[in-house]
Design a protein around this nucleic acid. Structure first.
Lengths: 264, 264
DNA sequence: CACTCCGTTTTAAATATTGAAACGTCGTTT
DNA sequence: AAACGACGTTTCAATATTTAAAACGGAGTG
């Protein structure tokens, strides 16, 4: 009876109950309307009773709440608390918020702050711009290292492994303008390292550009990256002298707040 | 063998597995250092193996991440995403943010925005002040209705049940200045209703005061409350005329953003 | 080099989850 | 008004799943 050792792929460990419940929680949080029990149940292909009991537990923890009128379920406020607790673990965010507000006010563009977490470049905070159309990506979004201004800053000033990994892996071609050639990217990155800022016009989404700069901590290591994001109409490439000056000043101010010293 | 039908109190429904896992997640998020597996396990009085499997699942969902160096566990970035998704459900926050920035800049004090969620008054957002000592409470914190400026606003302009419930329940005496007498509170609330703003100097923490005002939506119902928070030195009682003017203007501006019409 | 600590895996026992079906309630339809 | 349908909730027996204890292997330390 030579059977395949494990059918398709084995999951080394885990808890299926938890998995289901978490999928329910996530579904609820990302949906932007209250959801009915039955709706959740068959979205996850589970029985109503099962989902019900999980929702009760989630509710007990404040992660889910139920509209007393309609009986529908919504994500709970506890998620706010937990999210905020996580955010404050990254002190780039707390230190930089004020400075970034000023940057937003000075440029009128949306401002984002990113950091490498678990090998991925994630948006930690976003300050909305003043334009009519809203640009900018929500906190938690993950960026590619090769195709974003934030990413280039990290490639230039972050740990060398990042650059090696990115250069050796295939790079996704988001638009016709995305740089996917390792040599061109390497050249671009070393240029970023020299001048201290990066742009990536039309490389992820056509007509969108970003201008990014690194923030350093007391050890002189990169602690985060900040960028203004907006239409190529407002953020040209090469960038406006005013924008450049403002973002570099903001980055420097935040770096100082983290204990960075200019000399050395 | 006459045994008690149900030992202490029966929990109507729920999932104990989920409960344990959620307690682990919460523990991890509120601790501000990475935690070791064993540490989590005996903090929750569970076996290492159990917690391990749950952490694996949580990790698969991005709610937890593991430091590859030390093997310790930390809360994951997904919590940021979920928290942010929840926050944007409350449109008082998104609509009001810019206005509140300006209020902070005009007064120099920290600004908070609150709302009743599931019968509790919770802080939805905080804009830090400019003073050296940091005041203000983090998003997700819950306030008492009787002892905070935010609470008084809700008692005055919120659903009548809120006031009844608060008046009939015992009120915690935070400081010698906390109003705990139902009659005095009732008088205070009707005064708030007349003049359109509330303060609560020294009532939760000595030397701290807040000045709050209601925000209304398109149905002319209260949609949130905003307040400036700071030392009694900067926010006197009765409040400064400038502060009062600024906060009422901000509240009105946000209300308009939510579709509220001044003349009904 | 031995010792300890820690995260991880394995095991067999049993607890706790599961889904189907039934209940009661509410809002809508006929 | 009465019957229907949809919904959240509860019950119950079957069984799949979690559970805890102990063993494993690697890293750090005396």
């Amino acid at each position: 009876m030579q059977e395949v050792p494990k059918p398709v792929e084995k999951e080394p460990a885990g808890t299926s109950t938890l998995d289901l419940a978490l999928r329910a929680l996530e579904l609820l949080a990302l949906e932007n309307q209250p959801m009915a029990l039955a709706q959740i149940a068959n979205a996850l292909a589970a029985s109503k009773a099962t989902i019900y009991r999980h929702l009760v537990t989630l509710q007990r923890h404040g992660l889910v709440s139920q509209d007393p009128e309609t009986g529908r379920y919504e994500p709970g406020v506890k998620l706010l608390v937990l999210g905020e607790a996580v955010r404050t673990r990254f002190d780039v965010v707390t230190t930089g918020r004020d400075e970034l507000m000023r940057l937003r006010d000075a440029t009128g563009q949306a401002v984002t702050i990113c950091r490498i977490v678990d090998g991925e470049l994630v948006v930690l905070d976003l300050i909305q711009g003043r334009s009519v159309v809203e640009f900018g990506t929500r906190p938690g979004t993950r960026f590619d290292l090769h195709s974003s201004a934030h990413g280039r800053v990290w490639l230039a000033f972050g740990p060398p492994e990042l650059l090696h990994q990115t250069l050796s892996a295939p790079m996704r071609q988001w638009t016709p303008h995305t740089i996917t050639d390792p040599d061109r990217l390497r050249a671009e990155v070393s240029q970023v390292r020299q001048r201290g800022w990066a742009t990536a016009a039309d490389e992820m989404i056509t007509a969108v550009n970003a201008l990014a700069a690194p923030v350093f901590d007391h050890r002189n290591q990169i602690a985060g990256s900040i960028a203004i994001v907006g239409s190529t109409q407002y953020i040209p490439s090469p960038p406006d002298a005013l924008h450049l000056e403002k973002i570099l000043a903001a980055a420097q101010a935040i770096s100082r707040g983290l204990g960075w010293r200019s000399s050395r």
